[in-house]
Computed example of a mutant assay.
Amino acid sequence: MGMAGPRDERWLDADAGRLVRPYTVSNGRTRPTTKLDLVSMVMSTGRVHQARLEPDHAQTLGLCAGPTTVAEVAAHLKLPVVVTKVLLSDLIDWGAVTTTSPGPVAGPSDRIVLEAVLNGLQRRL
């Protein structure tokens, strides 16, 4: 999933990290075709298999197995957000990933949200 395979070894250095400039990953593109925010949720549709994709797109798709935010994908890829958005946008265009915008922000008196937060905290403690 997020592991480097034999094809990727020449592009990775244990100390330096990725040896390819981030914008090379997106072919110099800085504008995704799909509007994505840091908190936009992305998830694989299961229609496109990782084996059919370039390594960076395959790795990105692997991170979208379950619902995750654009920010989380960028953090795992260790790439600038704009590059991550371009990769995700490509996957969306190809039907490999679906996206949803975050819902409306809840007010401080929204009882359902407050109960969900409380329940989540109680499960973690």
Rank of each mutant, 00 (worst) to 15 (best):
residue 49 H to I: 12
residue 2 G to K: 02
residue 93 D to G: 04
residue 35 K to P: 07
residue 94 W to M: 14
residue 20 V to W: 00
residue 114 L to T: 10
residue 4 A to K: 15
residue 18 R to S: 10
residue 108 P to W: 04
residue 13 D to K: 09
residue 48 V to L: 03
residue 120 G to L: 04
residue 114 L to G: 10
residue 90 D to K: 08
residue 85 K to T: 06
residue 123 R to P: 00
residue 101 S to C: 00
residue 75 A to W: 03
residue 86 V to F: 03
residue 41 M to Y: 04
residue 123 R to V: 10
residue 7 R to M: 11
residue 91 L to W: 05
residue 44 S to W: 00
residue 114 L to Q: 15
residue 37 D to T: 11
residue 10 R to G: 15
residue 64 C to S: 02
residue 70 V to A: 00
residue 2 G to V: 09
residue 41 M to Q: 11
residue 3 M to D: 10
residue 39 V to E: 09
residue 1 M to L: 08
residue 114 L to W: 11
residue 30 T to D: 01
residue 82 V to S: 14
residue 30 T to L: 05
residue 18 R to Y: 07
residue 64 C to M: 03
residue 71 A to N: 11
residue 54 E to C: 06
residue 99 T to N: 07
residue 53 L to Q: 00
residue 13 D to P: 03
residue 41 M to G: 02
residue 48 V to K: 06
residue 13 D to R: 07
residue 73 V to N: 07
residue 86 V to E: 04
residue 79 L to C: 05
residue 112 I to W: 04
residue 25 V to F: 07
residue 13 D to F: 02
residue 67 P to D: 02
residue 115 E to N: 13
residue 89 S to L: 05
residue 23 Y to L: 09
residue 3 M to Y: 08
residue 107 G to H: 09
residue 83 V to I: 12
residue 27 N to W: 04
residue 78 K to G: 01
residue 75 A to S: 08
residue 45 T to G: 10
residue 73 V to A: 08
residue 25 V to G: 00
residue 35 K to L: 15
residue 97 V to Y: 05
residue 52 R to T: 15
residue 95 G to H: 06
residue 53 L to A: 09
residue 46 G to P: 03
residue 45 T to H: 11
residue 89 S to Y: 01
residue 55 P to E: 03
residue 22 P to D: 01
residue 76 H to P: 00
residue 124 R to M: 11
residue 31 R to V: 15
residue 5 G to D: 10
residue 68 T to I: 14
residue 3 M to A: 10
residue 7 R to Y: 08
residue 59 Q to G: 08
residue 107 G to D: 14
residue 75 A to M: 06
residue 13 D to A: 07
residue 54 E to S: 15
residue 82 V to D: 14
residue 92 I to R: 06
residue 103 G to H: 06
residue 62 G to Y: 02
residue 110 D to I: 02
residue 44 S to G: 15
residue 10 R to L: 12
residue 43 M to C: 15
residue 105 V to Q: 10
residue 59 Q to R: 15
residue 74 A to I: 05
residue 106 A to P: 04
residue 1 M to A: 12
residue 75 A to C: 03
residue 5 G to V: 05
residue 52 R to F: 12
residue 73 V to R: 04
residue 70 V to G: 01
residue 24 T to P: 00
residue 37 D to V: 01
residue 18 R to L: 09
residue 84 T to D: 07
residue 56 D to V: 07
residue 96 A to T: 12
residue 19 L to T: 08
residue 118 L to N: 11
residue 22 P to E: 00
residue 1 M to T: 12
residue 37 D to F: 05
residue 32 P to I: 04
residue 83 V to E: 02
residue 40 S to N: 06
residue 32 P to R: 06
residue 120 G to Q: 06
residue 35 K to S: 15
residue 115 E to W: 09
residue 85 K to M: 12
residue 72 E to K: 06
residue 93 D to V: 13
residue 63 L to Q: 08
residue 29 R to A: 15
residue 121 L to E: 07
residue 34 T to R: 09
residue 45 T to K: 08
residue 107 G to C: 10
residue 65 A to L: 04
residue 124 R to I: 11
residue 102 P to L: 08
residue 76 H to G: 01
residue 50 Q to P: 00
residue 109 S to K: 14
residue 113 V to T: 13
residue 55 P to T: 13
residue 119 N to G: 07
residue 92 I to K: 04
residue 97 V to D: 01
residue 112 I to Q: 08
residue 113 V to G: 02
residue 82 V to P: 00
residue 43 M to E: 14
residue 62 G to K: 01
residue 35 K to D: 10
residue 96 A to Y: 08
residue 75 A to Y: 01
residue 24 T to H: 00
residue 100 T to Y: 11
residue 94 W to D: 11
residue 18 R to K: 03
